[in-house]
């Protein structure tokens, strides 16, 4: 028996979210009294892989072959399934990010393993195996029992803190045989955002809504984000109007994020908007309307004009960082 974490890499590097996943896996392994194995697919250096050991990995498996250069959902499913069976994994943990959502459901069918997605706490019990997952777009959480021998969990991003448990984990290069006819994905073109903090990775997010009035007013909001080391986001009407890029749209139909701090500026707090941000640890609202629903979910609020308040906040943060 073992717990298997699939640790995705980005151009050969792990992110903080990878280490959160490993920390979580290590706690689940502890609950089950078994060891944690981490799987990495693709080209990742020994030095980078060793970092997984700092968060409790007992063993690190690297699979790297000609088929895993691009994400093909069938190929990746096949690799993870083969490793899971070989290592007799009873729980498989994957991030609930884009890649995790692409692969985990296939794996569930492949292994006939019950799956829970968007899990945000350690299992509530081991027998029956019960997890805590987001439902109704954050308006409720469910206790979900998985009935199968193998269980699959996708962990919500930024829901679990890093826990350092240094382990001198060995690296094993495992060869798995892949039926070449599985690889059907052809990538014709790639566009990458480089050098920008990804919204889903950010610990602080500054977000603007229709109350910002015009796309020309975003200067101080972007500056506040920059002095805080934050990413920028927006409400749906703002991206629909083309004031800001679609990548920034948060909410029911946009990105779901859970930063430590979400600063909502000129956002009313519609249910569909909150669906994407309600798991933020702290919410700050800046709004001219003291009755705006956003204040019901915010811990700190300023009733005032965003365009006057933002520059003052920028100054205050600059003062603090001096």
């Amino acid at each position: 028996m073992s717990v298997l974490v699939y640790a995705q890499n980005w151009d050969g590097k792990f992110k903080k979210s990878s280490f959160e996943l490993v920390s979580y896996g290590s706690k689940v392994a502890e609950m089950l009294n078994t060891s944690l194995i981490c799987l990495s697919i693709g080209t990742v250096s020994d030095e980078e892989l060793k970092k997984l050991g700092n968060y409790g990995a007992g063993k690190i498996i690297r699979v790297n072959n000609e088929f895993c250069k691009i994400l093909d959902n069938q190929v990746y499913t096949d690799i993870i399934a083969q490793v899971a069976l070989k290592e007799e994994a009873s729980v498989i943990i994957i991030s609930n990010n884009t890649e995790g959502k692409a692969v985990a459901p296939r794996l569930s069918v492949r292994l006939k393993a019950g799956m829970a997605s968007g899990v945000s706490k350690l299992p509530l019990s081991i027998a029956p195996f019960t997890v805590y997952k987001r439902t109704y777009s954050g308006n409720a959480f469910a206790h979900l029992v998985i009935n199968t021998d193998i269980k699959i969990i996708t962990l919500a991003q930024n829901s679990f803190s890093l826990i350092e448990t240094p382990n001198n984990a060995g690296i094993e290069d495992m060869s798995v045989s892949i039926d070449s006819s599985l690889l059907k994905t052809v990538i014709k073109d790639t566009q990458k955002q480089t050098g920008r903090l990804l919204l889903t990775d950010a610990e602080i997010v500054v977000s603007g809504g229709r109350g910002m009035k015009s796309p020309d007013n975003w200067g101080p909001l972007v500056e506040l984000a920059s002095v805080l080391g934050a990413a920028t986001a927006c409400s749906r009407p703002v991206s629909d109007e083309g004031w800001r890029s679609h990548e920034e749209h948060t909410g029911q139909t946009g990105k779901v994020i859970a930063p430590n701090l979400y600063i909502a500026v000129g956002i009313s707090g519609a249910t569909q908007h909150l669906a994407g941000v309600s798991s933020s640890k702290y919410i700050v609202a800046i709004n001219t309307d003291k009755d705006a629903p956003i204040f019901e979910v915010a811990q700190y609020g300023i009733v005032g004009d965003a365009l006057r308040v933002l520059p003052k906040l920028v100054e205050a943060v600059k003062e603090l960082k001096k």
């Binding site: 569930s108 019950g114 979900l144 029992v145």
Partner: peptide
Amino acid sequence: LTRITVFE
């Protein structure tokens, strides 16, 4: 393969 026991 799964079952919700309770909502919170």
